[in-house]
C-alpha cells in the first residue's frame, strides 16, 4: 500500500479545505458541552497536519493526538509535526480502543480508502466508549467499491464467478449489507450513501450493546450532518455526536441545524461541497457582494450561473489559492 500523502498534496484540495472549515464550525458549537479548547482532537495527521493546524489556530485546541499508520515514514512525519502533537504509530483499529475516553473528544477518521470492515470496527470502537459531547467524523472514498474491479476481472476468467455484490456481502457479512444491494449502490454517491448508512448501523449496534452492558453509560448518537465532495476522487463524510440523557439540553443548545453550510430544510441531505472553477478576479467580484442583503440579486457578470451559485452558497469556506513562484 502506498501512503496516500505520496499521491495527494493535501494542502491544495479546495473541497477538503472547505470541509475542514465546516468541521471547525461544528467543533466551535460544542462549547455548549464545555469550552472547546479543553476538547481533545484526534486525527490522522499524515505529513500535512492541515486539520491540526486549523483546529489549533482557530479553536485553541491544545490536546492533540495523531494516529499514524505509516511506521516507515516515522522520521518524516515527526519532522513535519507543526506543534506539540502526540503521535501514535499503528493501525487505528489497534489504537482507538485505548484512547482516553474520560475526555470529550473530536475524532476525525479521515481515511483515503473506500469503506472496509476495519473502518466499521473503528466506528464501533469509538461509539462503544465515547463520552457524551464527543464528535466522531468518518471520511471515506466512494468512487467505486473495489469488488467491482475484482468481479469484472474474474468474470473474464470465469463467467460464473461471484458478482461484485456477492463479494461485497462476503467482505462485510450479510447482516451489515442491505438485502436490496445492487451494483449501482457500489459506485458514486449511492456508494457514499451506502457507506454512511453502514457506518450508522454499526454505531447504533455499538451504542445498543453499550447500553445493555451498563445503562448508566448509555449514550445516543445523532448525525449532525454529512458531506459529499470531490477534489478528484469522490469522498463522503459522516459527522456524528454522542450525548447522554442528562446532556440532551446541551446538544440542543449547539443548534447544529443553524450552521451556515446546511441549507434550510435540507438537514437530512448530505452537504455537497462543490469545487467552483473561478478566477481570482471573479472571486473578488462575487465576494464584494456577499453576504447578499435580503431581497437583492447577485450580479454574476460573465460567470456561469451554476458556478456563481455554488460559490455564493459556501464562499466563506473556500480557500483562495495562488501559485507562488520565485
Amino acid at each position: 500500500m502506498v501512503e496516500s500523502f505520496r499521491k495527494i498534496d493535501y494542502s491544495i484540495r479546495p473541497a477538503k479545505y472547505a470541509e475542514r472549515l465546516m468541521l471547525c464550525d461544528v467543533f466551535r458549537r460544542l462549547s455548549a458541552f464545555e469550552p472547546v479548547e479543553s476538547y481533545k482532537y484526534v486525527g490522522f495527521g499524515s505529513v500535512w497536519f492541515s486539520d491540526f493546524v486549523l483546529f489549533h489556530r482557530a479553536l485553541g485546541i491544545r490536546d492533540m493526538l495523531s494516529i499514524e499508520q505509516s511506521e516507515a515514514a516515522r522520521e518524516r512525519i515527526n519532522a513535519n509535526k507543526p506543534f506539540s502533537i502526540d503521535l501514535k504509530f499503528g493501525k487505528s483499529t489497534a489504537l482507538l480502543p485505548d484512547l482516553d475516553y474520560s475526555k470529550r473528544q473530536f475524532i476525525w477518521l479521515d481515511y483515503d480508502d473506500p469503506l472496509g470492515p476495519e473502518m466499521l470496527e473503528d466506528a464501533a470502537a469509538v461509539a462503544a466508549r465515547a463520552r457524551s459531547g464527543s464528535v466522531l467524523v468518518i471520511s471515506v472514498q466512494c468512487v467505486r467499491a473495489p469488488e467491482i474491479a475484482i468481479a469484472d476481472r474474474e468474470m473474464k476468467i470465469d463467467p460464473n464467478t461471484q458478482t461484485a455484490e456477492q463479494r461485497f456481502i462476503t467482505k462485510f457479512g450479510s447482516r451489515r449489507v442491505p438485502d436490496t444491494l445492487s451494483r449501482e449502490d457500489l459506485s458514486g454517491w449511492t456508494y457514499g450513501e451506502l457507506s454512511r448508512n453502514m457506518l450508522l448501523a454499526e454505531i447504533d449496534e455499538a451504542i445498543s450493546t453499550r447500553k445493555l452492558a451498563d445503562p448508566s453509560q448509555a449514550v445516543f448518537a445523532k448525525e449532525i450532518c454529512s458531506f459529499e465532495y470531490e477534489d478528484g476522487a469522490k469522498m463522503t463524510s459522516l459527522v456524528v455526536i454522542f450525548y447522554n440523557e442528562e446532556e440532551r439540553q446541551k446538544l440542543e443548545s449547539c443548534a447544529f441545524e443553524q450552521m451556515d453550510f446546511i441549507p434550510a430544510g435540507e438537514q437530512d441531505k448530505p452537504v455537497y461541497i462543490p469545487t467552483p472553477k473561478l478566477t481570482l478576479r471573479e472571486i473578488r467580484n462575487l465576494e464584494g457582494q456577499l453576504p447578499l442583503p435580503p431581497g437583492s440579486v447577485l450580479n454574476i457578470g460573465h460567470i456561469p450561473a451554476s458556478e456563481a451559485k455554488s460559490f455564493a452558497g459556501m464562499y466563506r469556506y473556500f480557500p483562495n489559492f495562488a501559485v507562488v513562484q520565485n
Binding site: S174, D179, N197, D204, S208, T209, K211
Partner: peptide, 21 residues
C-alpha cells in the same frame, strides 16, 4: 430489554431477512 434493543437495529432486521431467506 435486550430483545427491544435488538429489534430496533437495522443490522438485526437485515440479518433476520437473510436468515429467513
Amino acid at each position: 430489554e435486550e430483545v427491544s434493543a435488538k429489534f430496533a437495529l437495522k443490522n438485526f432486521e437485515t440479518s433476520i431477512f437473510n436468515f429467513i431467506k
